Simulated assay, not measured.
Amino acid sequence: MPSFYDQLQSRRAARKSTLGEVARLIGMAPSNLTTALSGKHDVRASTLEAIGAALDAEWVLVPREHLLAVRRLIEGKDSGPDREAKTSVEMFLEQAS
C-alpha cells in the first residue's frame, strides 16, 4: 500500500490541484507544503487535516483488525456487490420469455 504521503500526492494529482493552490487554501507557503508532503519531516496533525480538507479527503485511524478490509476497499478490490447487476432470477426470467 502506498505511504500516506504518496496517497496525498496521488489525491492532489487526481484533483489536478497544484501545490500552490493547495498551499493557498490552507494558508501555507508552497515551499513549506512541499516540505510537509515530502514525508521527510514530521508534520502537525492539524496541517495534515488542513491538507486533507483542501483535497476533499480525510485521514482516519484504522484499527488493525480492519486494515486489510480498508486497504482492499481503497484498491477497489472489495467494493461490495454490484447493485446494478441483474439477479440470477431476473436473468432466468429473461431467458424464459
Score class of each variant (00 low, 15 high):
63 P>Y: 09
19 L>R: 06
21 E>S: 03
17 S>Q: 14
11 R>Y: 03
39 G>N: 07
82 D>P: 07
23 A>R: 02
23 A>F: 08
22 V>S: 03
24 R>P: 05
91 M>L: 09
50 A>G: 01
45 A>W: 09
96 A>P: 00
21 E>W: 03
51 I>R: 01
65 E>V: 06
66 H>F: 14
76 G>F: 15
1 M>P: 05
14 A>F: 14
61 L>T: 02
4 F>C: 00
17 S>D: 07
51 I>F: 03
43 V>K: 04
5 Y>L: 03
51 I>C: 04
56 D>E: 13
48 L>K: 02
88 S>D: 07
61 L>V: 10
68 L>T: 13
6 D>S: 01
71 R>I: 09
89 V>L: 14
84 E>R: 15
24 R>D: 15
90 E>Q: 10
88 S>P: 15
88 S>A: 15
85 A>R: 11
10 S>W: 10
64 R>P: 10
86 K>W: 05
5 Y>V: 01
41 H>Q: 15
76 G>I: 12
61 L>W: 08
23 A>G: 04
10 S>P: 08
37 L>G: 03
7 Q>E: 05
57 A>F: 10
62 V>R: 04
42 D>P: 09
27 G>D: 05
25 L>Y: 13
53 A>T: 13
57 A>E: 07
35 T>P: 08
60 V>I: 14
68 L>F: 12
15 R>N: 07
77 K>N: 14
11 R>G: 02
89 V>H: 02
53 A>I: 12
7 Q>N: 10
13 A>T: 03
83 R>N: 06
48 L>F: 04
86 K>Y: 07
1 M>N: 02
79 S>V: 08
74 I>N: 12
78 D>N: 10
19 L>F: 07
90 E>A: 02
72 R>Y: 12
19 L>H: 08
74 I>E: 12
19 L>A: 01
30 P>W: 03
44 R>M: 08
18 T>D: 05
85 A>M: 09
92 F>D: 00
34 T>S: 15
16 K>V: 03
40 K>R: 15
74 I>M: 11
13 A>F: 09
92 F>T: 01
12 R>N: 01
84 E>M: 13
